[in-house]
Amino acid sequence: MGRVTNFNPLCVLLPLFIVLAATATAQANLFLPRPRIGYYGSACWNVESIVRSVVRSNYFANPANAPGILRMHFHDCFVRGCDGSVLLDGPNSERTAIPNLSLRGFNVIEEAKTQLEIACPRTVSCADILALAARDFVVLTGGPWWAVPLGRLDGRVSLASDVDLPGPTDSVAVQKQRFAAKNLNTQDLVVLAAGHTIGTAGCGVFRNRFFNYNNTGSPDPTINPSFVPQIQAQCPLNGNAAARVALDTGSEGQFDTSYLNNLRFGRGVLESDQVLWTNPETRPIVERLLGLRFPFLLFGSEFARSMYKMSLIEVKTGLDGEIRRVCSAVN
């Protein structure tokens, strides 16, 4: 007589159930909204701490990385959306466009990416790293913290010909049009421009405004006369066009409302900044941020809110993008 073996169906069904449950969970995650807060979960639980550590070391090594990365994030989001396309290297990439030639901090993003590829291979996008790094650099300069939604994918296209960014001589009307095209309103425009509180600009970008405004042979009349010789000394007419000047005189590198107060007294370095005070539509917003007009606006809170909105511009999801292994090149 053959041997009888007791068969327990749970031995087959339990492992099968576990596999099916795991598969269902993974598929369900595909349909959850992205980007979102806490997107990576257990797949890369320490993503934010890794980026924050890299940001801290690079900030203390060179504080200029703070405005550099904040500007890079802005330039990324305003061209093809927040997809890390500005990070791609190549002969005709966005990095080669004139407004992007002075971008700095690419090494910071690559360093964070290298560490994340060790901790969580092929999981975290370069676009997400840039968004997190921008937030963390702002915090180190005394600015606000905000929750960054994650789950962006990296774009595969980066063309210099696509780069059409707000310019240093833009009127308020032109700036409003450019921001509205990205679903950002006039208050977002003023608040995000105030990120220049930690920014700098090359002399070649604005020098004519202090010497020969619109070929008049004189400085822009909206500039405070006492401010003109100060900038002229920093940016001589025949001096180095690449020399950089703080956009927030007297409070360089500190996230505060000093930049806005400088506009109030005609000490804006860029024409596109100073018009925010002279224009009747944007001036009340500046006044509210300075506590000069009711209802008041808290600059830190409003900056965080506008940065959150900006970070969601035209994000890539699904088949639109990828998770790059190296931030400077597509897979």
Rank of each mutant, 00 (worst) to 15 (best):
G195H: 03
G195E: 04
G195S: 04
I198M: 03
G199R: 00
T200R: 11
V205E: 15
R209N: 11
R209H: 11
F210Q: 06
F210H: 05
N212I: 07
Y213D: 13
N215V: 10
T216P: 03
G217R: 03
S218D: 11
P219K: 04
T222C: 01
F227A: 02
V228W: 08
P229N: 08
Q230E: 13
Q230S: 07
A233M: 10
A233S: 13
A233E: 11
A233Q: 14
A233R: 07
Q234E: 13
Q234F: 04
Q234C: 05
C235T: 09
P236D: 05
P236K: 03
L237F: 14
L237A: 11
L237E: 14
N238L: 13
N238E: 11
N240I: 12
A241V: 14
A242N: 13
A243L: 08
R244F: 12
V245L: 01
A246G: 12
L247P: 06
L247T: 07
L247I: 03
D248F: 08
T249F: 12
E252F: 14
E252S: 15
G253T: 08
G253V: 12
F255V: 10
D256N: 15
D256Q: 11
T257Y: 01
T257E: 09
T257I: 13
S258L: 08
S258P: 02
L260W: 10
N261E: 15
N261I: 10
N262I: 04
N262Q: 09
L263S: 01
R264C: 12
R264A: 15
F265G: 13
G266W: 00
R267Q: 15
R267P: 01
R267C: 03
V269D: 00
V269R: 00
V269C: 01
V269L: 04
L270Q: 09
L270T: 06
L270F: 12
S272I: 08
S272W: 05
S272Y: 04
D273K: 00
D273Y: 01
Q274G: 07
V275K: 07
V275Y: 08
L276Q: 09
W277M: 03
T278P: 11
T278L: 09
N279I: 07
N279R: 01
P280A: 14
E281Q: 15
T282P: 06
T282A: 02
R283Q: 15
R283F: 05
V286R: 00
L289G: 13
L290C: 09
L290M: 06
G291K: 01
L292P: 07
R293N: 10
R293H: 07
P295A: 10
L297S: 12
L297M: 14
L297T: 14
F299V: 10
F299Y: 15
G300R: 07
G300M: 00
S301G: 15
E302I: 08
F303T: 10
F303G: 00
F303R: 00
R305A: 15
S306I: 08
S306N: 06
Y308K: 05
Y308L: 13
S311I: 01
I313V: 15
I313L: 04
E314G: 00
E314I: 05
V315W: 02
V315Q: 06
K316Y: 12
T317Y: 04
T317G: 04
L319A: 14
L319G: 10
G321Y: 06
I323A: 02
